[in-house]
Design a binder for these strands. Structure first.
Lengths: 342, 342
DNA sequence: CTGAAAGCGCTTACAG
DNA sequence: CTGAAAGCGCTTACAG
């Protein structure tokens, strides 16, 4: 059995109170006692039970994290920076991977409650009434990262998805494209579904560009659905000359589809993605993308949560809006009218 | 403040012992009492403190996981299946992301100790003396997943990396290639460095194929290094007609390099990867790969660990060796002698 | 079938 | 500066 504080006290010939004091770096311990205790700790290889400490301190230094899909390039990256920031601040992560599974999510929230985690980070916006209620009842500080669920009082760290989508579309327009396809997300998602869609639509209308319904599809953010949606778009009589997909994964799927159908990116169709995941550099042509500041987003999410936990309520009610950034790579080119060419 | 067991007892008019009993589903509680307690629990919205329970039960249902890099396609996939299996068995994951940072790893092992995790999963094999000692002293059940550190008494769930690499090389040989490049891992890693390298080398020699030193490079398993190593290989006077990279990420880097240099995969150079990550399907051409059974590996790792935790020591000393599997996609083709062609 | 009491391994007033 | 004692929120013999 691992030694306990009592063993250390006995070994050092002091009270457990004194041992506790040197453990917690309190002053008011004479140097010689402190030294004896330290020696006892070293000799016995003692380390305090976090469990027991948590119980009395009413603080676990645990953060529960709900990720929609760790295998996604975007989420794994934001998770890695969340982990890093948490670790730097002596917090540990209880990671829960949810793949659109409300029951599992409820179960995990229950676990978070029983574990008495100090805070929670959620990275999806499919918050139904049941989950919403659960969260409210929990009474645990919570922050949403990269999303902002509809009509919820929760704090988010996000970008302005509407403007980001607008700017991405604008980029294609600036390149001379006027037949622009769109592969959106789930329209039940406000942040990554609706906002990005409306950014796209409004950019089109602001520049007097016609919206072709058949060129507008909605996927689930993953590569596979980007592929499938692109396939449907390519089946149309007239094809778009550019496509905007609201996730890099879908954009890559779209690129693959285009190339599997014997067309070229960006020769025949330009493609722009969204997120700024590492996939953008792993594919050829390298994918232009409207990037989220992923590392900063994860970091700020944790810092903000730690603020909430320590009760810094000043101005904490506000969302943090980070800046998006267009990163141009090789998947988009200027539109050239083929007929003019000949 | 959240209600405690005492509050429930008072509300229901019974002792805390009785409440505890219905909480733990013990028999020997009269139905009417049980009903009253259940009602009290529901009315008060009570849920037991996992912290307090852990303290007395000496069991936390926590598994500490050390991942070398969650943003890697391979590790995020194995992590997701580990999480799934753990969750199904009512275990939770404390996730630690290590990027070759011994200090952080030691710190985390210390945290695992203080947290009194029930078990540990480690997914890298860079176990130096310090870490080894730490692990031994911990006295916590531990399993290595996908790797087997050199000269350590720890149990691993792995494939036969030597044979897998041999078979991957053999595939290229069967396709008629005789100038075969190799992008290996860290030769300090027995599993993914040495074993794969020797599998490659022995396949060559078994088939009487010359080993060209200039075509043999070593990276760090990531896309970037696959790119850089391929660049060095391409700088040689004679180029290989096929390349085997010991991770899919590096293989993709190699493919990208080849294509950036105006050559084609598999037209000019065939490429085969290793792991079977989802990247294989996300790139074009789709990457042939010597695949590890990732999902099974993660699952078995957890189940084996749970066995260890519950003290099933029978035959537990043995590693689990899973089967590798060659998955042929579009990145390799039969070698055709250009001179014969003309 | 039920409850009072001890104990899990710590921290924290309180008293000296 | 130091220690005895209470308490964190549970479970588990033990007794009845």
């Amino acid at each position: 059995m691992a030694p306990k504080i009592k063993d250390v006290a006995k070994y050092a010939g002091v009270s457990v109170t004194t041992v506790s004091r040197v453990l917690n770096g309190e002053k008011y311990v004479k140097d010689d006692l402190k030294a004896r205790v330290q020696k006892a700790i070293d000799d016995l290889g003692y380390s305090p039970s976090h469990i027991a400490r948590s119980l009395v301190r009413r603080k676990t230094n645990l953060i529960g994290v709900i990720v929609p899909d760790v295998t996604s390039s975007f989420y794994s990256t934001i998770l890695s920076t969340i982990e890093k920031t948490a670790s730097l601040n002596d917090y540990n992560l209880l990671v829960c991977n949810i793949i659109e599974d409300t029951d599992k999510e409820l179960k995990y929230l229950q676990v978070f409650k029983e574990m008495r985690v100090d805070g929670i980070i959620i990275m999806h916006e499919k918050i139904n009434e049941e989950i919403r209620e659960m969260i409210m009842k929990l009474g645990i500080p919570i922050i949403f990262s990269s999303v902002k669920p509809k009509d919820q009082p929760f704090i988010s760290v996000i970008i302005d998805d509407y403007s980001a989508a607008y700017d991405a579309t604008r980029h294609l327009i600036d390149l001379g494209h006027s037949r622009i396809g769109f592969i959106g997300g789930d329209m039940n998602d406000v942040t990554s579904g609706q906002n990005r869609y409306f950014g796209f639509v409004h950019a089109l209308s602001d520049f007097g560009i016609e919206q072709v319904e058949a060129h507008i599809k909605f996927g689930d953010y993953k590569t596979r659905s980007g592929y499938d949606m692109m396939k449907e778009i390519l089946a149309c009589r007239t094809r778009p000359t550019a496509v905007f997909a609201v996730s890099d994964d879908m954009a890559v799927g779209a690129m693959n589809c285009i190339s599997d159908y014997g067309l070229s990116v960006p020769g025949d169709i330009s493609v722009i993605g969204f997120d700024g995941s590492q996939l953008t550099e792993q594919v050829r042509p390298r994918l232009s993308s409207m990037e989220q500041p992923i590392l900063e987003m994860g970091k700020i999410t944790v810092l903000k949560l730690l603020d909430l936990i320590s009760g810094n309520n000043a101005t904490l009610k506000d969302d943090v809006i980070l800046k998006h950034m267009l990163v141009i790579r090789d998947s988009c080119k200027k539109y050239v009218n083929r007929e003019d060419q000949t």
